[in-house]
Design a protein around this nucleic acid. Structure first.
Lengths: 365, 365
DNA sequence: AGAGTTACGAAAAGAGGTCTCGTAAGTGAC
DNA sequence: GTCACTTACGAGACCTCTTTTCGTAACTCT
């Protein structure tokens, strides 16, 4: 439950360091006095904390603000460029990479296509190349990447190994985190793509103010990620949210039925234009989706249901029937919204995961 | 995420008070030196903390141990009898009450029967009488009850109001916590029965070492409770785990099919003796159960699945087919065990909930 | 009664944090 | 350019909480 270890004075310093650093990261650049006011600490304490942080290289002193009244205050800024993290999506037909600094600002994107039946080695090599290209292209030395996180479809266990992948050839059993760790010689993490999507939405998307979130990545084969109390819930084997496994749910073939004629985008467009047959197809797909979604919703009773992934671009054409079926299946369905991100959501979630790791393990606490 | 407030020296004292109190509750009675050793604090600090706690009435000084070597040490004990909590199950056909002291030791049980079609007022009155009888019978003054928690079937929202009950007449809309608060003039909490069962198992039952737990209360109408990270997960409206709502799951009528001929106990007994027809019935019931259970398991991916409630007494007669169907439906089914409690599990969980409240709100932190 | 054992209690020291106050370093008005 | 005003810095006193040390007290055992 709570903490078990007793505390001494250094605990207080630890807490206050955290609080100060958190405030500084929000502020960007701030004076001692201002930091004192927003943290509730005395200026003296803030000063001591910042001295320590400067020593450790986390922050830097910025030039004083000119033109202000009174004696110029010393200003400090979080050294967002002290290190970088890479967020990576290794998808069925594409690789998406984002490079972010420690403040979470994404400073470079890179993407490339990959054949959906490419063997594992080829897919990995494409991912590696794209990631390196992204970092090199941004002019960031490879050694300055502190952590990499990768999202991929399939079940990824807590150690970052793909324990089961249905869609990607040769993917099952792959130690994705282990392999990716060698690319930059840094710690690497791996997780399921839907989980990372959920994380991204909670970080900067439509789920920012929700605590418990179910995120469904709709596309060829829907997947789901769950946030409990704002934190990723992975489960014992990392398989939390894998409701699609249940035959009763019918997620396996939901998409193939949808795209029997034409691409998904075409079907959605036709449905949006009022085409009866397309509407029926979409409705049927939404119903299938709703069955799985309702199982997750009933299990978790989330504050919010977020729909992400390629098909989410269809917007209300898909969401309206989904909401209808969901209301039918659940006692009280939560609010349903679409992702605010396009296809960056997984790599953005990966960035967040990497940053979480940095903040926890490198920054301490 | 983590704490937002900065800390000063008093934070350290708070932490150490918690640690000490926790240790003392585990030990029962302990000397200063011993407490120092197990908490990792100096004897002086422990002494200061204990002085404060004695002042506040949480602990008492016990007579020194005789016959030991050296100067007799002062001994302190947690005042488990400083207050009491009442755990209550308001079931379909019975009321179960347990009275526990602050150490969690149950010092009195009381139960009574109630008609399954009794109107709400009658059921409530029976619950009140039984609770009062339990406390009075134990010789505990009613004013010494600090918190009461009640478990009942149906969906109970976070404020302790029954937002939906299918089985109990007149129960929907009842402010159970509000009503029960008047019985002893203390804070009262209310929750779903399966949630409390889960809590009980994690506290003292088969789920003690599990972090994420799905608990299914099997009986007339199965219900489920979920523990995430050892804590109750209620969800937005308190409906987390209500997978039985989903028609595809078939929990609604699972039991009625089981008991078409004879009582449930008879069917289980016959199945245990090898009766083909009974085996088929049980297998069918187990299959229905497994569908809902697998939805929960896939959603949450728990460390452990615990089966409690009346039918759990059947043991492996029910569990074996359940495990089989579960293995069939889930990628990797978790361990499945039965509850270690009989029909005390809900009231025991209620005790735990009440104690949690006391520890958080009364003891501080 | 003396030796051995164990715990108590006061005193000193150190780490952190807050408050106060005199001083430094700017801007703006005259 | 000087003076008043504003704002921030820095040193010192003081408080809280913890730990360490050491002399003393209160037992048991021989």
């Amino acid at each position: 439950m709570t903490d078990f270890r007793p505390g001494d004075a250094s605990l207080v310093r630890k807490v206050n360091t955290q609080v100060t650093l958190r405030a500084l990261r929000r502020e960007g650049v701030a004076t001692l006095t201002r930091l004192g006011r927003i943290t509730g600490l005395s200026r003296q304490t803030v000063e001591a904390v910042l001295d320590e942080l400067k020593e450790r290289g986390w922050i830097r002193e910025a030039p004083p603000d000119e033109g202000a009244m009174g004696r110029p205050a010393r200003r400090f800024g979080f050294r967002a460029d002290a290190g970088y993290v890479v967020g990576l999506e290794v998808g069925g037909d594409r690789i998406v990479v984002s490079l972010a600094d420690l403040s979470g600002a994404v400073i470079a994107w890179e993407r490339s296509a990959v054949e959906s039946d490419a063997p594992a080695a080829e897919r990995l090599e494409a991912a590696r190349r794209t990631a390196l290209a992204c970092v090199d292209g941004a002019g960031v030395a490879r050694t300055r990447v502190w952590t990499l996180a990768a999202g991929t479809s399939g079940i990824v266990d807590r150690s970052g190994r793909v324990s089961l992948s249905i869609t990607l050839p040769g993917w099952t059993g792959l130690d994705l985190a282990g392999v990716a760790a060698r690319w930059f010689g840094c710690t690497a993490l791996a997780a399921n793509d839907a989980n990372l999507g959920a994380l991204a939405e909670h970080w900067r998307g439509s789920a920012q103010h929700a605590s418990d979130v179910v995120y469904i990545l709709v596309g060829h084969r829907p997947g789901a990620g769950i946030l409990i109390g704002g934190r990723l819930h992975l489960g014992r084997s990392g398989a939390a949210g894998e409701i699609g496994t249940l035959r009763q749910v019918g997620w396996e073939n939901a998409a193939t039925e949808l795209v029997e004629e034409g691409s998904a985008a075409e079907v959605f467009a036709a449905a949006g234009a009022g085409d009866e047959a397309a509407l029926r197809r979409v409705d049927h797909y939404a119903e299938n989706l709703a069955i799985g979604a309702s199982a997750l919703v009933l299990a978790v009773d989330p504050d919010l249901l977020v729909i992400g992934g390629g098909y989410a671009l269809a917007g209300d054409v898909l969401l309206d029937p989904l909401r209808r079926h969901l209301a039918d299946l659940c006692l009280s369905a939560p609010q349903v919204v679409t992702s605010t991100f396009g296809d960056e959501s997984v790599s953005l979630g990966a960035v967040r995961l990497a940053l979480d790791h940095v903040e926890r393990d490198v920054l301490g606490l």
